[in-house]
Every structure is written in C-alpha cells, then in structure tokens.
Write a protein that binds this DNA or RNA. Structure first.
Lengths: 206, 206
DNA sequence: TATTTATCGATATAATTATATCGTTATAAA
DNA sequence: TTTATAACGATATAATTATATCGATAAATA
C-alpha cells in the first residue's frame, strides 16, 4: 500500500465514499465517479482524483468495480486492521467514547481509560489511574491516544502520551497541542463545530 | 455584529483563540497577535486577520486588550446566547452527547432526544418518540438539530428536521446530507478523523 | 526630542485545493 | 463496421487559504 502525498481533505472524504458504496453495492456492479459525485454532491473530477489515490482500476465508460473499490478503501483506511487505543480522561465524554461500539467498525479498539481522579478509578469498568499509563502503553504497544480531559490538562496528558510511545493523538480538548514533528494530532474540536453552527444561526436569524 | 464573509477555517480557529486568551487573562492585560500565534503554533498574520473579523481594537506596539477580545469572541461565537437544540438518535452516542454538560459553556442547550425505537423512549430521561419531533421543534422554536442515527437513516431524519424548522444540523453520521441551500450541515465525521489517524499510523509503522 | 522597536492593518505573493478542459478508451447503438 | 457516448486519467485553470512584505503608528528608550 502506498500511503503517500494524500491530502487531509481527500482522506476525510474517503470514508464518505466507502459508506456510499456499501449502501449501493447491490445496485451497482460497476460504478463511476460521476454517479458517486452526484450522490454526494461533490465534483466528479474531485472524486476521480480522490479514488485514484487508493485504486487504479477505473475503466473508461465503465467506471470502477464496486466491490473492488470497497475492498481497496477498507484496506486503505485500515478498517481491516485493528488499532488498539486508550483514552485519557474518564469524564462523561471519555466514558461515552469508550462505551460507543461504533468505532470497532473502523478498526479502532479502545482498550482502557485513564484518569487522575482516584474517585473515578474502576478497573472492572476499565478505568485505571493515570500513573499506570506509560507501562500499559508500552506493554500493549499502544499507538493511538484519545484525549478527553479539560483544556487546561490537555498538554501535559499529551506529553505523557508521547513519552509513552503513542504516535497519533485524537484530541477532543479545544486547545492546540504541541508535539514533536512525527506525531500526529487530529483535533475533534466540538467547540469549532459549534462555532460554525452558531455563526450560521446568527446570520439566518438577524 | 457583522457576521459576514468569514471563512470556515477562521471560524474554527476562533474557539482556540478564546480558550487560550482565557487561560492567560491574568498574565496579559494586553496581548498581541504575535504572542497568540506563537502559543498556538500559527502564523501571526493569520491570527491578526482572524481577529480582525471579530474585533477592530488592535493597536500598534500594544496589541489587543485581552478582556475586550475575550468578550468580543464570546459574543461572536454566541457563547453568551443560549441555543436550544434537540438530538435525534438516542443510542450510545446520542445519550452521551445529551449527558455531556460541556456544551452549556458554548451556549448549546440540548433539550430533548428523539428516537424511533419504542424500547428506548423514556420521557423521564428526556427521550421522546420521533413522531413528536415536529410539534416539539415548532413549539420550542428549535433551530439546531443533532443527528446521531445510523448512516442509513440520516437523510430521512435530516429531512424531518428541515421540515420542522431546523436551520442548522450537526451531523454525526458518516454521510453527506442533502439540504436546501439555506440550511447548514456541520459534519462531525468521526470516521474521517479515524481515517486521518489510521493513515498516519500506516505511514509511520510501514 | 529623536530614534528604535513591536505591532497593527493592508496588500502582495505563495501554496493548497477544487474545478474545468481535453485527448483517449471501452462499450453500446446505429 | 462505423459512430456515438460515458467515463477515465492527465493537465490546466480558477478559487480559496495561508504566509510574507511593507508602510504607519504607539510606546519605550536614548
């Protein structure tokens, strides 16, 4: 697999293609970028370019073999590989993510949550004290860490994760995290999303 | 307030600025775009341009008055205005979001969840049958809807929300929603985030 | 008071991302 | 068998977004 030079925007559209393809796999044996673009209200050239980075099987007049494309997307997106992860911050959001079974589908397996508050520790519920994080990460070879602590603690948690060998961080705190160059931070900024919503409403209702 | 011509990327950075400013309000009476940019690892011109869309009080050599800027950002982002919202889909994610108190801080007040499955209806827990959604939205003047149903049901739920007067939709399903021009869809695509994480790992570990 | 400095706002350039165009090819219809 | 068409890939153009440059200005220092 050649995971090179693929833009974040492309990468973020791939799951949409995959989802759409799965929903029409019975309907189309072959499918074209034009049809996909139409269904997802995107530009067909964009779809074609995006797909070119995971597949090279497109044929003029015919398009792509739907099942092949699904397979290629799933492989590329790592849905067929299990990635073990841990969560730091066992508050409401952390627990919710941990309890959310939907991530399995994407190859994400959340093994454990960690928290600094002794009151929430509960090993039966898979919540351990943060002191045990480094050892756990090394032993289990954890490469993905999810941060759901309050903004003011996010950076220190981030540092701890990096020290413990984590390579990719999914950050739910509304802060910018400073990390070494080779570590990826993916921000899931709910505040940012809300900003967009609220701004739209202010526009509409004024 | 003039909410015009502001790019989504800018809008998404504003909460970061606000959060940072709050964390240093005791330290700096005045603050410059340079300092903010440095702290958030952004370009100073970008910060200045972003701030120009909410404030016009920057002074050479001095920068901005921290407290004024905080106030302006909060107003602009609508954190001082309560936006009532509802959730459709009372599965794990829906319940989690509903129970998550953090949104209050951003002016988002989730009043009720709706679901089509009679087994999960529980008015004491603020989960109502989906049939009651349109009436509820109209009566309570709901303008924000949050979609946490499975991908295959997302479009019909979206249509229902639009019919019921909702103007902005926060979509957690990994699908593209088709809506009239004046309705905003903000996608919180967890699958997309995971795609980015997984791709990075594949790169690093290959 | 003159000079230096940090910073602003405005404008210009660069980089990235999206869209349009064009030649080619595989299939279907005439 | 020829012609038409849908769709591909490649390349070119347009739009958006980020970064760099520059003159102006408020405060600090000489």
């Amino acid at each position: 697999m050649f995971h090179l030079n693929i833009s974040k925007s492309t990468l973020q559209r791939l799951p949409l293609y995959l989802n759409y393809l799965k929903s029409v796999r019975d309907k189309y044996v072959n499918i074209s970028a034009t049809i996909i673009a139409d269904a997802l209200k995107l530009n067909d050239v964009q779809v074609r370019k995006d797909l070119a980075s995971v597949s090279s099987s497109g044929k003029p007049k015919v398009g792509y073999v739907t099942e092949d494309l699904i397979k290629e997307l799933e492989d590329f997106l790592g849905y067929n590989t299990v990635n073990n992860a841990i969560i730091v911050g066992a508050g409401k959001l952390g627990k919710a993510l941990m309890g959310y079974s939907g991530f399995k589908e994407y190859g994400l397996n959340i093994l454990m949550a960690f928290d600094s508050d002794p009151k929430v520790i509960d090993e039966a519920e898979r919540i351990m004290p943060i002191e045990k994080l480094p050892e756990f990460c090394r032993k289990m070879n954890i490469k993905i860490g999810i941060i759901t602590v309050p903004a003011q603690n996010a950076q220190e948690v981030c540092d701890l994760l990096v020290e413990s060998g984590v390579l990719a961080i999914w950050n739910f705190a509304p802060v910018h995290l400073r990390v070494p160059e080779d570590i990826l931070v993916q921000n899931e900024n709910m505040a940012a999303a809300l900003a967009v919503l609220s701004n739209h409403l202010a526009e509409k209702l004024k």
